[in-house]
Structures are given as C-alpha cells and as structure tokens.
C-alpha cells in the first residue's frame, strides 16, 4: 500500500513536471488497483512520445467513472464493470462510455509449503474464511488448527476475494488482517497452519499455491475464464476514443508495449 501512496505522489509529481509540454494531454483517474498499470504504461508512453502529457490520479473506481461522466477525466480506470445507472447518467450527459479490458486480476489461495492440502473448493474456502472450518482435518489436511490470514478490507485484493469467494458473507473477525501482500507472504511462509491469498504477481516459492475446484491459478486459466477467483480490469473512455487517447489505449493494449508492464505490475496480461 505504501507503494500505492508513493505512486500517488509520483503521479502528482508528473502532473507538475510534465504539464508545461505543448501538445496533447490525457487525464486518467480511477481505481487504485489499476493505478500501477496506468503508472508504468504512462511512464513508458511519455518517454516514447514526449509531446503528450499524461496526468494520473487514483481516486477509486467509482470516483473515476464519476469523473468520466462529468467530463473531468479522459480515461477512467475501473476494477469493476460500469453499472447500469452510471451508463444511463453518462448517456444523458451525451457521452457513451466505452470499456476496454486492459488486464486481469487473479487471486490465488496460498498455504505453507509443508501443508499437505493441494486443492480446495470455493465453498471450502468460503467456510474457512467464515470461521466455520477451524481444523485442516475437515478439508483433508493434517489435524491442526486453521490460521486464516486476510487482507485489510479496503484493498483491491480483498475486494476480489469478497466478491468471488465470500459472496455476500463476511470474513469472520478472527481472521488475521495483514496490510500488504508482502505481509501475507511473510505470515503464511512462517506458519505451517496458515492460509492466505495473494495476487498472482506476488506468488513465490516461500508459499504453496492451491488449486481451486481443481484448477490451478495461472495466466492461461485466468484468460480462459476457468479460474474462479479472477476479474478483468478496465479503462473506460468517453465515446469511442480519438487522437491521443486512441493512440494511448492502443499502446496499452499492444502486446509488446503496454501489456509488458501489466505483468510487471503483478497482473495477468491479455495476450
């Protein structure tokens, strides 16, 4: 999260430093989940096309879409699809929002490498995170207590977990909340009884990734839609993009340019 703060500061720095350049300018606002992608791609883009200036801020998906409707931003980053009410509001203001899926966010459950469990169903994961399953024995593991590790409730990673795994149920209060993916990795790798979840970009050998409903979480299963704990990330534009904005969106979607940075930011690229 510190990194997100930092990137926010960097984004403001960009605004201040880059805006005097003549030529086109693109304003991007929205989801903090998409922010690291937008940040890296924009940096590379401006290096290649110094005449275009890009200013980025991360105010959350809802704020980004609201800014798009109001016309105060050119591109809205969003970690969810636009809602019907928002489309209606936007059309009333004379702009049809156009979605571009730019990446996928894939969240994988992880356990300590010594844990014998290799697969859990979505329902088992839900029961564990609701505090109903308290012993690994109940899901085919050793006779040991389950230590549930979750993320703070305002993180994008938690959002996916909440939406895809918990489905309207709350994570029970006994779950250990960690403030960053790094802290989750630390906590899981040092506790044989722990279970946690990480974005696919944060997986390493110190933790064991579990398969969900028998499906491993990787780029292939995410793109084919088989892996259940994944979601697309979007950039929305006001109407079909033109000029600099079209050029930028194309850059983001280019497998050799923008998509390279998607993987660097810890997400699954489209191609």
């Amino acid at each position: 999260m510190k990194i997100r703060w930092l990137s926010g500061v960097l984004a403001m720095f960009f605004v201040l430093v880059v805006s005097p350049v003549h030529g086109g300018s693109i304003k991007i606002n929205g989801s903090t989940t998409v922010l690291p992608i937008a940040q890296k791609v924009a940096e590379a883009y401006m290096k290649e096309y110094p005449e275009v200036s890009i200013s980025i801020s991360g105010g959350g998906s809802g704020n980004g879409i609201k800014a798009l409707i109001d016309g105060t931003t050119d591109v809205a980053n969003s970690s969810r699809f636009i809602r019907d009410a928002e489309v209606k509001m936007s059309v009333e203001r004379g702009a049809y929002p156009v979605p571009f899926a730019v990446a996928y966010d894939c969240i994988v459950p992880v356990v300590h490498p010594a844990n014998t469990v290799t697969d859990l169903t979505l329902d088992q994961l839900k029961a564990i995170y609701m505090g109903e399953v308290k012993n690994w024995k109940a899901v085919g593991g050793p006779d040991a207590p389950v230590v549930v590790i979750s993320r703070d409730t305002s993180s994008g990673t938690y959002e996916v977990w909440d939406e895809k795994v918990m489905r309207k149920q709350r994570v029970f209060p006994g779950a250990l909340l960690q403030a960053s993916s790094g802290a989750v990795t630390q906590a899981v790798s040092r506790n044989r009884n722990a279970i946690g979840y990480l974005g696919i970009g944060y997986l390493d050998s110190s933790v064991k990734a579990l398969t969900v409903n028998g499906i491993p979480g990787n780029e292939e299963t995410t793109l084919s839609g088989k892996f259940p704990i994944a979601r697309p990330l979007f950039m929305f534009t006001r109407g079909w993009p033109e000029g600099d904005i079209l050029h930028f969106i194309n850059y983001v979607l280019n497998p050799h340019k923008g998509q390279k940075f998607v993987r660097e930011a810890g997400y699954v690229p489209l191609f």
């Binding site: 999260m1 510190k2 997100r4 703060w5 903090t32 703070d152 409730t153 305002s154 993180s155 994008g156 209060p173 006994g174 779950a175 250990l176 909340l177 960690q178 403030a179």
Partner: peptide, 27 residues
C-alpha cells in the same frame, strides 16, 4: 496479528486501534 476479536487469552491475535488506522487509511 490483526484479528478484530476481543482477546480471551494472551496468545490471541488482536488488532489495536493504531494498527487499524494504519492498515486502512491509505485506501
């Protein structure tokens, strides 16, 4: 530990107030 539970033993994970503020304020 970060669990939002009222502790019943000294080995229970807990989440004191400053930890909650620090973990959640950024987002």
């Amino acid at each position: 530990g970060g669990a939002g539970l009222i502790p019943t033993s000294i080995f229970d994970p807990v989440r004191p107030m400053p930890a909650s503020i620090a973990a959640e304020m950024a987002e």
